[in-house]
Design a protein around this nucleic acid. Structure first.
Length: 200
DNA sequence: AAGTACCC
DNA sequence: CAAA
């Protein structure tokens, strides 16, 4: 277990052991069943290569008209509850009394990636964002608080947890690619990232 | 504007 | 780039 700090990103390498990772996957199974993955469109006409769903009071959503939080899945059902194991990681790392209101689940298949972006659809940027990596390795890129300039990258492995607070809270970040089938956690391969956020 | 292209 |  090592803690790195890059541009304000707190990167907890190996934070979750294999037992904890497996327990999280088991806890996510009912979430995926109640709220199936979908690939949202983005403003401008593109479509995300990542497939996603959410748990919590709000889910993150995007379509041609913009990015936002939605109080239900695109098929209409309420988002399932955030699993206790996930909330426990949030409390351990942030020490906050307030709980996250959204746990976005991003699933990266073989060729999925995510361009550099800011998390800025929330009301209060003083709350950190917590990001949990499960499954295949992902090449994580960190930029600056506005577009352009030099970036730094690090491979995130299953069980790593990143806390984005302070200067990192509004720093551009993204995932260039994954190493498909580099992990055996998910038998079908791919990477799951959980992003915990206070929304309101 | 979490997409694309391209460039290093 | 196009568009939010």
């Amino acid at each position: 277990m090592a803690k790195l700090r890059i541009r304000g990103f707190e990167i907890h390498k190996g934070y979750l052991d294999l037992t904890a990772q497996r327990a999280l996957i088991d806890a996510l199974r009912p979430v995926l069943k109640a709220a199936p993955l979908f690939s949202p469109s983005v403003p401008g006409g593109g479509q995300m290569s990542v497939r996603m769903t959410s748990s919590g009071q709000f889910g993150w959503y995007s379509d041609a008209s913009g990015y936002r939080y939605a109080d239900s899945h695109p098929k209409g059902q309420a988002w399932p509850e955030i699993p206790d194991q996930v909330l426990s990681i949030w409390r351990q790392l942030t020490g906050l009394d307030r709980q996250p209101e959204c746990c976005l689940l991003n699933y990266y298949g073989q060729d999925a990636k995510m361009g550099l972006h800011q998390d800025k659809d929330e009301a209060d940027f003083s709350y950190p964002v917590v990001s949990i990596s499960l499954g295949d390795d992902g090449l994580y890129r960190m930029g600056n608080q506005s577009r352009g300039g030099k970036t730094e990258s690090i491979w995130l492995n299953s069980g790593d947890v990143v806390v984005m607070g302070g200067e990192a809270r509004l720093t551009y970040h993204g995932v260039d690619r994954i190493r498909y089938k580099s992990s055996r956690l998910l038998p079908k391969g791919g990477r799951i990232n959980l992003t915990l956020r206070v929304v309101t």
